[in-house]
Amino acid sequence: MGMQFNEIQMTEFKRLVARYPEGKQKSALLPALHLAQESFDGWLSVETMDYIASLLNIEPIEVYEVASFYSMYNLKPVGKFVFEVCQTGPCMISGSDNIIDYIKQTLDIKPGETTKDGVFTLKLVECLGACGYAPMMQVGKIYKEHLTKEKVDAIIAEYRQLAASKN
């Protein structure tokens, strides 16, 4: 058994479960998977999902089927920072194609890939509800909006620095 929540994470997990009535602890599954993904390198391994199943006292398959349904859960390892760039209608008509091409070119990766240094993953996503501030992408919890090539350069530099300071 590899990964387990530390004390702080476990306190948060218990807070999540406490929102629901007695016997309805399965309702905490989505938030618990978010917590697990944040706690364990940004993705959900089978081991992690089994661990969550044991904590919620449900079958592992109940976790797998949920984790594979929702687009925010990563079932494969990802870079330290994931650029999730919106490509749906409103962003497309505001120039997201150019932004996506520019990121691909600058990071030298295709959507779904991670840079060799393990810092960035590029993911194309569908509408994130920032249509008025397009083009845009999500990085972790944050939205980066009104993207231009210059802004993309600055964002890449910002996260490169953050990655370096974490090492």
Partner: peptide
């Protein structure tokens, strides 16, 4: 966790039930 369909009220309820 990323699913347009959960804006439909019964899908939302399913999701809220985990």
């Amino acid at each position: 966790a990323g699913a347009y369909i959960c804006g439909e009220e019964t899908a939302l309820i399913e999701s809220l039930e985990g």
